[in-house]
Nucleic acid binder design. Sequence first.
DNA 1: CTGAAAGCGCTTACAG
DNA 2: CTGAAAGCGCTTACAG
Lengths: 343, 343
Amino acid sequence: MARTANATVHDVAADANVSIATVSRVLNEPWRVIPVTRDRVNASIQKLGYSPNPRARLLARGDSGTICFLLSNRPFMHSVHARILQGATIEADARQIQVVYAHCSYLPESAPSEIELPRILGAQGLIDGVIVAGANYPNLLVVLDELELPYVVYGSNLAGEAISNAVYVEDERGGYLAASHLLGLGHGKIRFIGDTAMPWYRRRYDGFARAISEAGFPCPAALGKFEGDEFAMGVAAATELLECRNKFTAIFAGGDMAALGAMKVFRKRGLDVPDDASVVGFNDEEGASLSEPELTTVCIPKEEVGASCVRMLRDLIDHPGEPAEPVMLPTHLIVRESTRREP
Amino acid sequence: MARTANATVHDVAADANVSIATVSRVLNEPWRVIPVTRDRVNASIQKLGYSPNPRARLLARGDSGTICFLLSNRPFMHSVHARILQGATIEADARQIQVVYAHCSYLPESAPSEIELPRILGAQGLIDGVIVAGANYPNLLVVLDELELPYVVYGSNLAGEAISNAVYVEDERGGYLAASHLLGLGHGKIRFIGDTAMPWYRRRYDGFARAISEAGFPCPAALGKFEGDEFAMGVAAATELLECRNKFTAIFAGGDMAALGAMKVFRKRGLDVPDDASVVGFNDEEGASLSEPELTTVCIPKEEVGASCVRMLRDLIDHPGEPAEPVMLPTHLIVRESTRREP
DNA sequence: CTGAAAGCGCTTACAG
DNA sequence: CTGAAAGCGCTTACAG
């Protein structure tokens, strides 16, 4: 349904006594029209409360002015992605581009041809590019490549090989920071929870391992198998850890949810955090500051991830053919209540 | 930037040897074209991989086919709203309409003229209507009314008077369920946390009060002042409760975050939940099942709220002038670990 | 049942 | 510096 008649270029042109071309020019290349006319046109625009119909403008120009924020393999957006979206929205808004939200689910092992993308991505001309967030696997990238639509992915949740059109956070350094913190607190027996088959856990583990060996300790194997549910991975890993009765005084989990899962197990078994075991997480999700005790964790710049994604995407859209330069964003440690000095 | 030449109506028309009008017809009113031609056109569509440019289609038709999901007064989307958005997206997708995300912040006491809306809402023709979520106040509605854009709001987070173009959850009944559960467990001294100046807490309190008085108990006053941060409200209320040393064996908080805030205070003071005090929350947020102990709470149908919003909005858009019928969605209790029988 | 044509609201060479 | 005109990719009366 159309809204009640709004002013169009024609109305403004008539009112200002110029052609519609001139109206369009004062809007898009004002320097090309002489001040007198320009002022007259602007006055009419004001008077009529005119604002250009973006849809018509975009049709005429040939691009859509909208990008898609695609969230994969999550029942809904949790805090990390909500903040990435937030950062993306703000950055996009500043560039006059709008972001539409879409989601999709697929199995890591599905054939690309079996992956069902949201309709928006299929409809031609509706979207200029896509930001891919959520937990992703290589098969999705194949589908995206076939679409010939520019896209950038949040790299620190991407399985498979690293790609250049992605925004990463410093996973390795984050792991190093976490381990160093624990080491500095006098912990010697630290275990890592996270499935190193997933590159992001792998990188966090690598940083962890680097700190451990720099400190002269032998580096313990990583614990946990990721099957889509990080909390469950934490629960399973902690259970296993307790069962094999290996000594440990601290754990570093490659994700806050894993840390929370582990803490839940510890508590059920009567182990106090941080008195009996210190725990460090990764991401600084909303749950990290809500938990009891509050979680010490590696914080990632979520809003900045979103903003970087739209900047990179914009470049990709504006300069087709030119390869993207991967972006790496800094992480830092937030010390809260779940870690303490080992007596 | 335009994408590499895609097929258009003209290409299809040429290939099928018909006019573009006919192509358009098989797309929009297939019954009006004779089967032979229709099949031929469809074959060409298939062959060329044609899909109509929605933007042009919408320009020609006169509506935008997109609605805006507006999140107010929240630094980012937390789980309740993420799920509302999720439900809205799915419902919208089924109706071929896309949803763009936007956010805005304003003070409850700002003059409507001072509220700054996201640009998308200002640009004419870009959006057909808006779904208003987040915590909202009457002044925003004034601005929205001036825009003459259809909108529907998530009513159970709206301050001020109830409105008809809104989707509510059964707050009163939820409160009743919560109190009944506690009563059934033998609790007599139950306190309510929630600022009754806010209609949603008020309704939850009303249900609570109804159950309490049906059980023959005197109904205690509500505790807490809401100033935008529910967790903080819970902390303050619980602190106050403990300080005035009033006896209580259970509390019902009008929101999960308030419940979590209260639980944090209890724990710091050495009060065990549920052994020393039972706690019930409201909403069933993500944090409710992550907390320790897991929170017993009143669950609201978040996805359904989102879906109902787009249905109502669609009606409003299609039938301008016709008033909306408010929708009320059911709530139910989820019993977890934070409540137990009073010995 | 189908086509030729006008129109949706803009932008942008092309002239002048 | 400005206008007349074509075009973006569709839809939809209006004829036939």
